[in-house]
Amino acid sequence: MQRIRIKYKKEMKFIGHLDMVRLWERALRRTDLPAAYSEGFNPRQKLSFGPPLPLGFTSECELLDIYFEKWVNPEQTKNLLSSTLPKGIEIIEAGNVFLARASITAEIKTAVYSADVSGDISEKISEVLGSKEIIVQRKEKDFNIRPMIKELSQSGNTVNIAVQCDNFGSIKAQELTGMFKENLTGTFRRIALYCS
């Protein structure tokens, strides 16, 4: 099994998660690398993705696990895939991982996002950090997202926010953008995924 780290730039933010899955299946098929397939009537390559990137977000740190039938040099994976990807998708690195290792989604606990903002948002930041509850609507019910916000800061024209992103819950894209709506000047970027 190999884990690759990917950047999705520019217009790639408009490609939804399921379309990305198909894109990687086709890219892998183009390389002719010995991908492992599932059994059954509709065999598919065994690919395992990290937490879906929200539509409209770019990313510098997406993860994808690829299962192979036999040994493949990770450099070869990286080179062959890189040569057949549409513009705007870049593989940062590929490496072998221990087959019994937990899935990406089981390992990831935290996602860090950043976005360009205009004006002073220090007040907004203190307000968020100082509050015990930030109520949003989920399935027509009140839902407190405050416990999922782990860190929030501004450096220059950029706001950085670390949020919970695991099997027990994560912040939705519109909840994230909603917090800084008036000040946003660009799109959100996912800049890191952490295991703790």
Partner: peptide, 16 residues
């Protein structure tokens, strides 16, 4: 505009 419409990928081109 693309950020506010359904299936923005219909309009972006850049496909393989």
């Amino acid at each position: 505009i693309l950020s506010s419409v359904t299936k923005p990928a219909r309009y972006i081109g850049n496909e393989l």
